[in-house]
Amino acid sequence: MAVPKRKTSKARRDRRRTAKERLTIPNVMDCPQCHEPKLPHRVCGACGYYNGKEVMSVE
């Protein structure tokens, strides 16, 4: 069984852990109908359009 020769420092341990837990910024695109920012592959909350069709009515 492998045994480490030296103690892993807290800085090295924490640097390794944070690399996996980093959050990415979500992609934001403009709606082709109303040009409001929206997430891709989702219905626009401002106009209710998705893929060029009205999916839900927004009041």
Score class of each variant (00 low, 15 high):
T24D: 07
P4E: 02
C44I: 03
E21M: 10
N27P: 10
K38L: 01
E36R: 04
P32L: 04
E36K: 05
C34L: 06
D14L: 12
V58D: 00
R22Q: 00
L39V: 13
P37Y: 01
M1G: 13
A2Q: 08
A19L: 12
K38E: 10
K38H: 12
C47M: 08
T18I: 07
Y49V: 00
C44P: 10
C47S: 08
N27K: 15
R15H: 08
K20F: 13
V3L: 12
V3N: 15
Y49N: 04
R15M: 03
V3W: 10
V3S: 15
D30E: 08
T8N: 07
K20W: 10
K53Q: 06
K10A: 08
S9T: 03
P37T: 09
L23S: 15
K38V: 01
C31V: 01
E21R: 09
A2P: 04
C44Q: 05
P26I: 01
A46P: 05
A11T: 14
K53P: 02
M29I: 15
T8C: 02
P4Y: 01
P4Q: 08
P26K: 00
K20M: 05
C44G: 11
R16Y: 12
T8E: 07
M1K: 09
K10R: 05
R6F: 08
K5A: 12
R6D: 13
Y50F: 03
R16L: 02
L23C: 11
V28K: 11
H41C: 07
T8A: 06
M1P: 06
G48L: 03
C44F: 14
K7S: 06
K53G: 04
D30C: 09
E21N: 06
E21L: 08
T24W: 13
M1H: 09
R12M: 10
C34Y: 03
E59T: 01
Q33E: 15
I25E: 15
K53L: 08
R16N: 09
S9H: 14
P32Q: 09
P4C: 07
E54D: 11
M29C: 14
E54M: 11
R42E: 04
G52Y: 00
Y50C: 04
E21D: 11
R16I: 06
T18K: 14
V43Q: 04
R13S: 12
I25N: 15
I25W: 15
P40A: 03
C31K: 00
R15E: 10
V3I: 10
